[in-house]
Amino acid sequence: MNEPLRAISKLDRVIHEPGRLIIVALLSGVKECDFQFLLAETKMSKGNLSTHLAKLETAGYVEIEKTYRGKVPMTLLRLTRTGRKAFEEYRQGLMAAF
């Protein structure tokens, strides 16, 4: 296997999916955000976004916290340290692949 192909095969599959890539990219730019922010930015449906977030949470890349803002329920999301590292590695891997 040549070097670019090996680099492609090393890309993180969890992040590589376009929907999740946008989510992780957005989360990497902030400390934390709520579900509504991701919904507005990604233009995904609620179900789709929840599924992607659940996968990212399972991988240990995203931390989900259910909280309240006043009396309004709010879902806070933040990238974990592992998630940030994985995203950085993904971006470096993307350049290494070509």
Partner: peptide
């Protein structure tokens, strides 16, 4: 109120 809550990392 329109886009959603977000805060930046120090």
């Amino acid at each position: 109120p329109r886009i959603g809550y977000f805060s930046f990392r120090p």
